[in-house]
Amino acid sequence: MKRLEAAFDRGKVLVAYLCVGDPSVDESVELARSCVRAGADVIELGVPFSDPTADGPAIARASQRAIAAGGGLAATLRAARALRAAEPHVGIVLFGYYNPLFVRGEERAAKEAAESGVDALLVVDLPIEESSALRHAAAAHGVGFVPLLAPTSRGDRIGAVRVAAAEGPVPFVYYVSVTGVTGTTATDAGKAGARAAELRAAVGLPVVVGFGIDSREKARGAALGADGAVAGTALVRAIEEGRAPAARAEAVEKLVRELRAGVDEARPRASAS
C-alpha cells in the first residue's frame, strides 16, 4: 500500500498491465522489469482466466496462451514474488477475475498476495457489494482493494466506493474510460480524464483511467485530468507481435517510454526520492 501511495505522491502515475504467463511466467517478470525501467510506476500482474468477459480479443488470446503455458493464480503470485525481489519500490497490483481467488479461498489468496509483495487487488467482476469478504481478508494482511467506476456509474456507485474506502485500504480508483471491453479504440481519453477529475473530487482518492490507452496522446489526454493512465492491451499486443524475448522487451520498453512521455506532458513528476 505504501508503495502505491508513494507513487501517487510523486505525481501522475503510469500503470502497466501484463498478462502473466504470456509467453512465460519468467519472461513476464522480465517484461515487468522492462516496464519499470521505461517509467511505469505500478505493474498490474494479470492473472489469466479462462473466461475473461471484460476483455477484448487481444487479452483473451493472451490469457489462453498463458493458461496453456501454466499460467494462473499460483504462477502470478510466483511472478509477484520475483518482481518484488528485483524491484522493491514498484507498486504491484494483482489484477484478475474472481473465480480463481474464490476457489483458492479468499483468506489464503489475500495472505499469499501479501507474502508475495502485492500491494493491492483488482478484481474486474467483483463489484463492491460482493467484495466484502475479500476486502476484509486483504485489509487484514495490509493489502489494498482497487474499486472500479465506469461511465454508467451514478451517485450510488460513488457512495459504494466511499464505503469501501472507509472499511479498508483503497489506494486508488480505476475509471473505465468507455462502456466496452479492453482494447477498445473508441476511447476519448481527454473526456475520460475530465470525468476522472470529477470522481476524484467526489471520492477523495486518486483516480486512474484505463481501457484504450494505447498512445502518447491518449496517455497525455487521460492524465491531464486523471491521476494516472493504465495501458494494457497495447502492451499485450506488442508482446504478441514480438518474435523473440529481446524484441518483445524492446517493443515493451519503447511503448512504455512513449506512454510515460505522454503522462509527463500532462504534468511532470517530482524527482523520485
Binding site: 467482476d125 467483483l126 463489484p127 465506469a150 454508467t152 451514478r154 473505465v176 466496452g180
Partner: peptide, 12 residues
C-alpha cells in the same frame, strides 16, 4: 446467486 459482473453493467 449475486451479481459478479463488470462495474459498467451494475447500473443496467
Amino acid at each position: 446467486g449475486g451479481r459478479f459482473v463488470a462495474e459498467t453493467l451494475i447500473p443496467a
